[in-house]
Design a binder for these strands. Structure first.
Lengths: 224, 224
DNA sequence: GGAACGAATTGACAAATATCAATAAATCTT
DNA sequence: AAGATTTATTGATATTTGTCAATTCGTTCC
């Protein structure tokens, strides 16, 4: 595919690379398209690349027996695979596109090499890692301290604020995905979504969700 | 307190520092003792230092309303506060000693500065961060996919394998702490611990725990 | 040494949540 | 467009787990 010259379009953190480092990356990057439903990364498989999402949405999830736990919905601007850096040569999670995805796949050795020689870049990657960690901590609180209604509220707020960045969005998660994102049974998730819809907190038609009352959602999240 | 010359005694990752960097650290490090029950870090407070545990055990927990969620039991060799690096100027969690603790407190600006100039060191810190992340992922699975028995089994295995590094150990967690570590009510934790004791899976007397049947614990963890 | 306090324990019960089964709706196949 | 297959929904029920209250145990404090 076309050579990449303007790295700032990919990620702001790549702007701290030197000209040589940018060249190195552009020589070791592949642009790919994944159709909806395709597997981008497989947990436990060798993590030979760092993936960067240019367009589309993908679910990042941990597989455990027949059930998954969805960690996050990644989208434009997100890296995948950073958590294996300097720690493991395998992916700690699976990633599957839930909409057609355009990604850049960067050779991990190259990525690692650049981090090892460019400390500014390293600190920016660290910032991303810690941003993820702070999100995980919010998930822990949601999962352990809140009941179903609070968790669903948290999930909707997260999707609206962090993923789709709008109060009305067309989400590509199935009801099952939605449940796996909140750590509850599919039936419970459906029931509570319906309840929220009936109570005019959200308007839900199929996979189009609109937040009607942000105040109530925030209150539900707060009350747990 | 005495000046520190042999950094490898503190943490192996400090061995990648240059002589100058070591000097810089030794000039900006303070050795402190915390008595059991004292607060080492307070969530939301300014994270002006990186803390390193030389001796003792401390609980790392997220505060939420009246309840806490214990992320981990930190001990000799663990850093505290790395998750705020390049991301936040406040602590993302609280830390309290559950046994007398001897710690080294390093000025965060100095720490940050060294990371920004020493990419090898940066990558070692990244390795620690990702190690933590992998632990968090295990917690997610335990919390969302397992019932109380599986979660208690996981907690015991974690304490034995990662924290006290022995099949028999004197843990300094209260029953409430234990419950907050597994995300359940204190009463449930007590009941299941007692059940494990009665079933000769563990031997529990007060705060001395001995694993009798590692096989059964692993099976309980596996079954969830 | 006993009073006072908090931690640990136990039992009974209520609340929250999952499971199962039965449809209904949507999507894919041919 | 009909049939087949998956996904979504609903209701009834069982299971899991938390809550509350009562009691015991252990420690601290005069």
């Amino acid at each position: 595919m076309s050579k990449i010259n303007d790295f700032s379009k990919i990620s702001s953190c790549l702007s701290s690379l030197s000209t040589e480092e940018k060249k190195l990356i552009s020589e070791n990057i592949i642009e790919l398209k994944y159709k909806k439903g395709e597997n981008i990364c497989k947990q436990e498989s060798f993590s030979s690349c760092i993936v960067f999402i240019n367009k589309g949405f993908a679910k990042v999830y941990i597989e455990h027996k027949e059930k998954n736990f969805i960690l996050n919905i990644s989208h434009k601007g997100d890296f995948i695979g950073l958590s294996s850096l300097f720690y493991s040569n395998t992916f700690m999670y699976s990633v599957a596109s839930i909409e057609d995805c355009y990604i850049s796949s960067i050779n991990k050795n190259i990525f690692t090499q650049i981090i090892s020689q460019n400390a500014k870049f390293a600190s920016e990657i660290m910032s991303i890692l810690n941003n993820d960690t702070s999100m995980y901590f919010e998930r822990f609180i949601s999962l352990t301290q809140k009941q179903l209604h609070g968790r669903i509220a948290d999930a909707i707020l997260h999707l609206s604020n962090e993923v789709y960045k709008s109060v009305k969005f067309n989400f590509s998660l199935s009801r099952r995905d939605f449940a796996e994102f909140t750590g509850m049974s599919t039936e419970s998730a459906i029931r509570i979504l319906k309840e929220f819809h009936n109570d005019r907190i959200i308007n839900l038609e199929g996979k189009t969700m609109e937040i009607i009352s942000m105040e109530l959602l925030l209150k539900l999240s707060e009350l747990g």
